[in-house]
Amino acid sequence: MERVPILEIGGVLLVSIQIDLQDQTVLALQEDLAQRISDTGAHGVVIDISGVEIVDSFIGRMFATIASLSRLFDATTVVVGMRPAVAITLVELGLTLGDVRTALNLERGLKILGEQRRGRR
């Protein structure tokens, strides 16, 4: 089974999804991520899905799950780079991402996390 790599950059965990997600991969990612946030004490998680073209309701729920999971560690989740087709699919599926933040691209996502961190201090 393929695993999605989790990178750490400046107190932020970066998850860049470049493969077609299987349900097993998603579950493994959630476990890995929880472990890494707890290990590193990261204040933010950025999920880059610019490479994802197909989503289903399971993947749609993944974002909300990761968001509530990281909130337990006081980390904010930002989903970046969602493609129009994916956004339309999620809306048609009637899925809301809860209070997950979204941004057009990785740069904006990191900016949001930076601003939030400065605001907290």
């Binding site: 989903v79 994916v86 956004a87 339309i88």
Partner: peptide
């Protein structure tokens, strides 16, 4: 509404 929600999902 759907358009607006989709835009929001994309971060706009």
């Amino acid at each position: 509404l759907k358009t607006a929600f989709a835009a929001r999902l994309m971060g706009a």
